[in-house]
Design a protein around this nucleic acid. Structure first.
Lengths: 172, 172, 172, 172
DNA sequence: AATGAATGAGACTTCATTCAT
DNA sequence: AATGAATGAAGTCTCATTCAT
């Protein structure tokens, strides 16, 4: 409900009603309204993706495609909770930190996929840059995904572009 | 104030107080609180940047660096208004649209800079991919910039990575 | 507008708007809102009906029928103003008095019609009673007329009853 | 308070104050102000009068006199609630209906009294006309009673007139 | 532990009225 | 004479939170 209508715009009374419990009970377990938020972000699902699931050895482009597709799937599953992060990050420090953690995890993830798929043939610096770049792009894509109904393409050209750039370049 | 504390959490009374006018006057000019938002986004500065200002012909990396640096400067100047966009996009359609417009403008901007700096030597498809990718990344960077005090680097490695990928590859 | 929505529920601003004059002008001519009411009841149309118009000499029942029908017609024409009387009588003394005047005028009217139609053959006391009775009944009928769409019959049986009661009774 | 000053002109705050409860409590039990009205008309006393209480068999005039006197007594007792009906009928449908119900009940009451007092000796059609007429007149009398301090007579002449008209007329 | 009645602060909004121009 | 900006009082309603039971 916080994700859908915003923290301020969601009265605890409606939460109680929705949960089919008396209003007093909500405040019995969560003295302040903000405590509900705290409890909520503790339950954020861990979005770790095992690289083995998506990596196609030697094919960075395809590996990234599968990663993005898997990330999209998970996002869809926990869309509400994710949404919450974007909405309330400004006013609640705990949320801000959770959002940050998420981003860092995403960078590592992309990095791992590229490295594994690249089979040692890509320069580490490039991997870092590409991973940072892609993580930023994916994050923005997800942050606005909440406003759109269709998932807005799978970023095929962008992924190909990155994969192409990572391919070992023959010496001139 | 909306940017700082959120729309809901900013009472019109505090706005009036801050503006040193009686509460009634606020509602005289903006019948509904939401009208304040409407007036606000109409004043969003036009972020058009003349490519000539940043392009270094033949040097894509440097051109992008200057573009990012210029964008950052402008963001800093209107940080509050920009912030507002991110916060209230969920509940106010007008804001959502302004946010969208902004992104599209950014894509075109990046594209124009790359094309001009590339002097016709880069494949159009790659330009599109790179522009899309960078626009996404920059957007996210700006969207979280509000939470941080330091500007979080200038994306040097990422820009170099992109520029490198765009450079005409000598035939093998 | 007062009649339709009530005095309190009609802002002077809407009155000005409706009249196509600036808001300030309303208060320029009518310093207090209540002054508008005062001006209004001064314009209440005089509902005098010339007995000659409705009386059928010798036929009291028919005469009363015509009187009622004529009163209904006039009511319909100034329904709004009449309505006003009923609405605001409680809170505005001037209106209360206007309402009273109206009732007294109605009594005299009915009395005159009966007398003229009766051609001197009815006892004065009975005429007074009948006139009072009918004036009360008609007043109530009009006061609730505003709530109904159809005029709710012409009171034929009641008029016949009264007329019958007034007919000179032959001595036993 | 609604009866005395009108619905619009009675702030909930004054109600709370008058009831010696905090303002919030009023809205706890009656979410909208109009709900107060709803609760009020549910409590309208049932004005049924047992015909046996007032009928003097064979004496219609006296029976009606006693009926009117009894109705007046009851009106005085619940003057405020009755008053309310007249004031707010225009803007609140529930009130309008209550008012209508009341009138219908009155018609039946008068009818029953006449019939019982008349001991079968009056024509049914005449009873209906007389009952309708008297109910209208009584209703108006009560509706304006709120504006006057003295009860404005007991309608003696009018009641006598009606009773006289109902008396069986000897054949000529 | 659980509940729902109670509370009071405060939010948004409306409006009659004043006033400088 | 005319106007519309300005004001401040007040009104309805919402809600987090407390508290007695």
């Amino acid at each position: 409900m916080f994700a859908e209508s915003g923290f301020d715009a969601t009265p605890t009374s409606r939460i109680a009603e929705h949960a089919n419990v008396p209003k007093g009970l909500v405040h019995y377990y969560f003295r302040r309204k903000a405590d509900l938020l705290g409890a909520l972000i503790k339950r954020l699902p861990d979005e770790q993706i095992d690289p083995a699931l998506v990596v196609v050895p030697g094919d960075i482009a395809e590996s990234l495609r599968r990663l993005v597709s898997e990330l999209d799937a998970r996002l869809a599953r926990s869309r509400m909770l994710s949404h919450l992060l974007w909405r309330e990050a400004d006013t609640h420090r705990a949320i801000r930190r959770a959002l940050d953690d998420r981003f860092q995890r995403l960078v590592r993830q992309v990095r791992a996929v590229i490295l594994t798929a690249g089979e040692g043939g890509v320069a580490v610096d490039d991997v870092d840059s590409a991973a940072g770049l892609l993580a930023l792009a994916l994050s923005y894509r997800h942050s606005v995904a909440r406003h759109k109904d269709d998932p807005a393409g799978l970023m095929e050209p962008e992924l190909n572009f990155i994969a192409g750039a990572l391919m070992p370049r023959p010496a001139t």
